[in-house]
């Protein structure tokens, strides 16, 4: 326990750092992911192509490389210099592709007949999506979306390599204070196990509540 109580300041900073990246990154990921997901199922071909290009480009790039782009290339090119903001953008834009794909798969789980029936009674694309498809898709999207969120939480540690304080970077600080790296890292791992299990619990609850009978 000494590792924690003696270095309370660092653990608080690190946890706050992780949660900051998590919450702000999540907002970007969800908003952008929703837009891109919508683009990928839209009737506008060019929008579909742009969405597809974005998803395939970013999803096949390692997150670490995304961080390199934002930490070292973006400051040179666009003169944005706040590292924390850049890190949040990097992970937000990366996770958005996963959000978009999860949404799209969710839409695809709604049986074809549902949309066809809606169209048969004369609904427009927006009506089909808004009244028929999305409400049904939402239920099947929530559990896998929680998985994306859990993976996202774990991915925040990658920011450690880019001068953004979070639970992943605490080892470097504490080994300088003479703490054993093994003990520190086991505590970090434990913190993540607790957070992930908590999120999994929420996921399980939602899944039970919104189980789609089909």
């Amino acid at each position: 326990m000494g590792v924690i109580t003696d270095n309370w300041d660092l653990w608080v900073d690190a946890t706050v750092g992780t949660l900051q990246i998590f919450f702000f990154g999540l907002i970007i990921a969800l908003v952008l992911g929703f837009i891109v997901g919508a683009m990928r199922v839209s009737p506008i071909p060019i929008a579909r192509w742009v969405g597809t290009a974005y998803v395939n480009l970013v999803r096949n790039t390692p997150l670490t490389l995304m961080f390199f782009v934002f930490a070292f290339a973006v400051p040179v090119v666009f003169e944005i210099r706040d590292l924390r903001l850049l890190g949040i953008l990097a992970i937000g834009l990366y996770t958005a592709t996963y959000v978009a794909e999860t949404l799209r798969s969710g839409i695809n789980t709604v049986p074809v007949g549902q949309a066809e029936a809606a169209r048969a009674v004369g609904m427009s694309f927006t009506q089909v999506m808004g009244h028929i498809v999305l409400p049904q898709a939402a239920r099947s999207v929530i559990p896998p979306m929680m998985s994306v969120i859990i993976a996202f939480l774990k991915n925040t540690t990658v920011a450690a390599g880019f001068s953004i304080m979070n639970l992943g970077s605490i080892r470097a600080y504490l080994s300088e204070r003479g703490e054993n790296a093994m003990v520190v890292l086991l505590w970090v791992a434990l913190v993540f196990v607790v957070m992930v299990f908590a999120l999994s619990g929420v996921q399980r609850y939602l899944e039970k509540k919104w189980r789609v009978a089909r």
Binding site: R59, T97, Y98, V99, E101, T102, S105, G106, P143, P144, M145, M146, S147, V148, I150, A151, S200, Q203, E207
Partner: peptide, 11 residues
């Protein structure tokens, strides 16, 4: 079910 999405994003 989450497995499909865990890091994989349900494709």
């Amino acid at each position: 079910q989450m497995m499909a999405a865990q890091d994989v994003g349900t494709d």
